[in-house]
Simulated scan of single mutants.
Amino acid sequence: MKPSSLPEIPLPPAIRSRHVEGINGLTMHVLEAGFETRGRPCVLLLHGFPELAYSWRKVMPALSEAGYHVIAPDQRGYGRTVGWHAAYDGDLAPFRLTNLVRDALGVVHAFGYRSVAAVIGHDFGSPVAAWCALVRPDVFRSVVMMSAPFGGPPPLPFDTAELPAKPKAEDPVHRELARLARPRKHYQWYYSTRAADGDMHHPRQGVHDFLRAYYHHKSADWKQNQPHPLGSWSADELAKLPTYYVMDLAKTMPETVAEEMPDAAAIAANQWLRDHELSFYAAEYERTGFQGGLQWYRCGTSGVFDAELQIWSGRTIDVPSAFISGRQDWGTYQRPGIFEAMQTRACTRMLLCELIDGAGHWVQQEQGAEVSRLLLQFLVANHAR
C-alpha cells in the first residue's frame, strides 16, 4: 500500500509523519517533533515489539519543547517503513543487531547529524540502542535503555588453548520447562516458530482484542504484575514469570492473553491506551502482520549471529547511560542477573536507574509525563558533564 493511501495517524499537533528514502535499503517512516527550527540537538527514539514509532507520541512533544529535534522511526520490519522482506524462510541477516544499528546510523545521517544527544530504546529497541552506544559512541553520545536491561556483548571462549574443543552445549531449560508438572515454553522461542505470526495475525478474537489483552496483561493495570529478581535461569525459577513470558506449552500467545482480557469498564477507564489509539496499532498489524518483528527474536534465539557480536566481547558502554522501567514490569528481571550486570559491569557511566511506580512494560505510554521528566533530567545532567 502506498503511503499516500494510508489513513492519517492520530498524532498530537506537535508531531508530523513523513517518509525518508535511501536508509540502508529502506524507505523509512519517521515521526518527527521539533523540526520547525534547525540546529537543535537530536534525540533518536527506537520502539520495541509489538509497537511502532507511535509508541513515543507522549514523550516527543515534551522533548521537542525542551529544544530537541526528536526522531522516531518505524524500525525495520514494522509499520509504514518499507523495503524489508520477512518471509519465514527468507534471509534473517537484515534483522540482526548490527544491521539494526546500521539502520539507526542511517537515520541520523539522513537528517544531517554527525552525532545525537541520546539514543533511547524501549523493549527490543533497548538492546538496539545499547549496541548503538557500544559500537559508535562517537555518534550516539548517550543512551537510555527502557524495560530491557543490557548485560553486555556475548563473551568469547577464554584460556582454552590447552583444553579439548567442546561443541556448543544446548540450553536444557527448554526441555526442563516442557517437563514441568504444568508444561511451559518461553515466549521468545515461541515467537521464533513458524506458527507464531499466523497465530497473532489471525487470532480467534481478532487483532484488536488480541492487542488489547496483550497490552493489558503486561501493564500495571494487571495487578498480579509484582516482579522480583529470579534466582537462576532454570525451569523452576522461570515458571514464576507470568504466562506472557513463560507460556503454557500448548497455548498460543492470543490464547494466553485472552484469559486476562479486561472487561468493558476497565477498557473504558484506560487513559494510557484509548481505543482509538489501540485501533491504530491494530490496523497497522492487520496490514503488515507480525513476522517483521518476530525476525528479531529469531536472530537472537538461533544464535546464528552471536559470533559477529563477539567481536565486541569485553567492551563496555562508556557514554553516559540510563535505565528506565516500570516498577510493575517483569521485563527488568526476566533474564536473571542482567539488571545487576548492566549497572556493575556493562555500563561504566550510568547516571540514572529508575523504576516508575504505576507502570508495567509500556512505561512511556503508561506514565508518559514521568518518563519525559526523567529523560529531560538525564539529558540535562549529561550535557552538564
Rank of each mutant, 00 (worst) to 15 (best):
V173L: 03
W84N: 01
L375G: 00
A62W: 06
D171M: 14
Y281F: 15
P262D: 12
E366D: 07
K2R: 12
L309A: 06
C299H: 05
F280K: 04
Q205V: 11
C353Q: 08
R80W: 06
A307M: 12
G25L: 05
H174D: 07
H47N: 11
A384P: 01
I311S: 08
V304C: 07
A283G: 11
V304Y: 10
M261F: 11
G151S: 10
M200D: 02
P164M: 15
Y214C: 07
Y68H: 06
A369Y: 10
H202D: 13
R385T: 05
W222M: 12
W131K: 06
G112I: 11
V143S: 01
R349A: 09
R175W: 05
E366P: 01
L379R: 00
M247P: 00
L351Y: 02
S234E: 11
T252L: 07
M247Y: 03
F323T: 00
V143P: 00
I317E: 01
N225D: 10
T81V: 09
S4H: 14
P157H: 10
V319T: 08
D236K: 14
Y281T: 05
A381F: 03
A178W: 12
P254C: 11
C42T: 07
P10R: 10
W233H: 13
A33D: 05
A235N: 07
A268M: 08
Y245E: 14
A86Y: 08
H202S: 15
M28K: 04
